[in-house]
């Protein structure tokens, strides 16, 4: 059993938060550059150029990429021969508060959702113990920093188990097109199909950690990913809803076993402030 120390874990959380708030990932920047070359709408081109410009300014000045420094959402995957002998959740909360305070990141959370009282820095944590060979002696920690706009444009639906593929694709496509103008397109879409209900949402969110351009290993889902991406881009909504053919940069679907009576589907829109980063310990 390999032990990962609290110091190693703390250092990883710090790295993830600092990096993700100032640097957009390479796959995203490349996708934007490709979109600029193919986009014919001049307003859309301008918005896409501003996205690159903003990324450059943020990386140099260390002003956060977006003022909505959101809720950092951590996905901790623990291999079967790894031991973390400390309170993971408490450590994440402490380090998130420390980094957000030191880096002057916005305090965007209220303590009570209905009373809207109290302010705090907060990170959500999902821990999974995996049995994958490559992670046997390792711990993989990823973060997605998601703002309120992206969270508000994410939905869950229960379908009848007899619903056919075409109906699901139509529903997903129409839902994305409807939600797009209320976040910041071009978006990246994560979709979770199956599982139990909370699992479908976690699948959708975790799928956003995939690299743009990488398709689901199952050709059946890979084909649906392409189909939805093309259909949404044909909507003409465009960057920031101002028109153009760049509405979505990629669509990721992940599937999991589910009950014979259920068909859960979760759709998560990720705005163009695609703050994701991974560290493997």
């Amino acid at each position: 059993m390999r032990e990962i120390t609290k110091e190693q874990f703390v250092s990883a959380i710090r790295t993830l938060l600092v990096h993700a708030n100032y640097f957009l990932p390479e796959d995203f920047l490349q996708a934007i550059k490709t979109a600029i070359e193919t986009e014919v709408n001049l307003v859309a081109k301008d918005v896409l150029l501003k996205i690159l410009n903003n990324a450059e300014i943020s990386s140099i000045t260390k002003l956060p990429l977006c003022q909505d420094t959101g809720i950092p959402q951590f996905f901790v995957d623990i291999g079967k021969d790894v031991c973390l002998n400390f309170d993971i959740n408490a450590t994440v909360q402490n380090i998130t508060a420390e980094v957000y305070e030191n880096e002057k990141l916005r305090c965007s959370c209220v303590v009570d959702p209905l009373k809207r009282t109290g302010k705090l820095h907060f990170g959500s944590v999902y821990i999974q113990c995996l049995n994958k060979d490559e992670l046997d002696r390792r711990c993989k920690i990823s973060v997605l920093i998601r703002g309120g706009g992206s969270e508000n444009t994410s939905v869950f639906t229960n379908f009848l188990p007899t619903t056919n593929k075409e109906e699901i694709i139509t529903y997903i496509t129409e839902t994305i097109i409807k939600l797009l103008p209320y976040t910041c397109p071009p978006v990246i879409v994560g979709i979770g199909v199956g599982g139990v209900i909370e699992e479908s949402m976690i699948l959708a969110k975790k799928s956003l950690l995939r690299t743009i351009g990488i398709r689901n290993k199952d050709l059946f889902y890979a084909e649906i990913e392409k189909q939805i991406k093309d259909a949404v881009n044909n909507s003409g909504i465009g960057p920031l809803g101002l028109g153009g053919k760049t509405s979505v940069l990629d669509v990721f679907i992940e599937a999991a076993p589910t009950h014979i009576a259920t068909l859960p589907v979760s759709i998560v829109l990720q705005c163009h402030s695609y703050r994701k980063h991974t560290v493997v310990l």
């Binding site: 956060p64 990429l65 003022q67 909505d68 916005r106």
Partner: peptide, 22 residues
């Protein structure tokens, strides 16, 4: 419609983009 991040590194204000208007 905006809620900025606090000022830092000699900037008078932090990041200050718009929020969803709807």
């Amino acid at each position: 419609y905006c809620a900025a991040t606090p000022p830092k590194n000699n900037f008078v204000i932090g990041s200050c983009g718009p929020t969803s208007a709807y």
